[in-house]
């Protein structure tokens, strides 16, 4: 464990908690893409199948449980509890264009052709594009609530910090995982436009508005 990875995990956990609280407190999921949350639930499910078979540490196991539980709770709130506030008309990104290519790629490019490893690889590839429906929705509605932009910022920063974690691990542990690194780079690049708007607007107290 290193500081970048720890801060990355904290940032990721914060994003998940911010979203949960935003929906629960405001009793509304307006502006939130249910499709992205569904994709995140798939990402965690396919990545943590070894939750009960491969114990790494208490920290690792407890974080995995929190991630899986909170992602399902978020999907449940969007599609069930507060579905009346779900803005389906603006959440129209075709997720099959994300799931099918990443699934095919996980069969072609992986570390080992075994079910668990292919599912882990699929979850890594899917995570790198899972935020697209949410970013697409923000661009369609032309704006995002400030709390939603904080959620997106924390979520984007988590994988950016992981990039530094991989530099650290390459330098000091001679460890590197090219699949995770390339997918992490793609994931971070997708946030660049949002990072620019967040830093130039939201941090100056303005509302996040995208040129529609």
């Amino acid at each position: 464990m290193n500081i970048f990875r720890f801060l990355g995990d904290i940032s990721h956990l914060s994003a998940i908690i911010i979203l949960l609280l935003k929906i629960w407190k405001s009793r509304s999921c307006a502006g939130i893409s249910g499709k992205s949350q569904l994709l995140f639930a798939i990402v965690f499910t396919t990545r943590y199948l070894d939750l009960f078979t491969n114990f790494i540490s208490f920290y690792n196991t407890s974080m995995k449980v929190v991630y899986v539980a909170s992602s399902y709770a978020t999907v449940w709130m969007i599609y069930s509890k507060f579905k009346a506030t779900y803005d389906g008309n603006h959440d129209t990104f075709r997720v099959e264009f994300l799931i099918v290519p990443t699934a095919i790629l996980s069969f072609l490019v992986n570390h080992d052709f075994t079910p668990l490893e292919i599912l882990w690889t699929f979850s890594i590839y899917l995570e790198s594009v899972a935020i697209l429906p949410q970013l697409f929705m923000v661009s369609k509605t032309g704006e995002a609530e400030t709390i939603t932009s904080h959620y997106l910022f924390a979520l984007g920063i988590y994988r950016t910090l992981y990039l530094f974690n991989w530099i650290w691990r390459y330098q000091f542990e001679e460890f590197f995982d090219l699949i995770a690194i390339v997918a992490g780079l793609v994931q971070t690049v997708l946030y660049c436009d949002f990072f620019y708007l967040y830093i130039t607007k939201v941090l100056k107290g303005k509302k996040l508005s995208l040129p529609a």
């Binding site: 990875r5 075994t114 668990l116 882990w120």
Partner: peptide, 10 residues
């Protein structure tokens, strides 16, 4: 190089 199955990151 990462070995298959030993993914210790979240």
């Amino acid at each position: 190089e990462a070995l298959p199955g030993d993914h210790d990151e979240l």
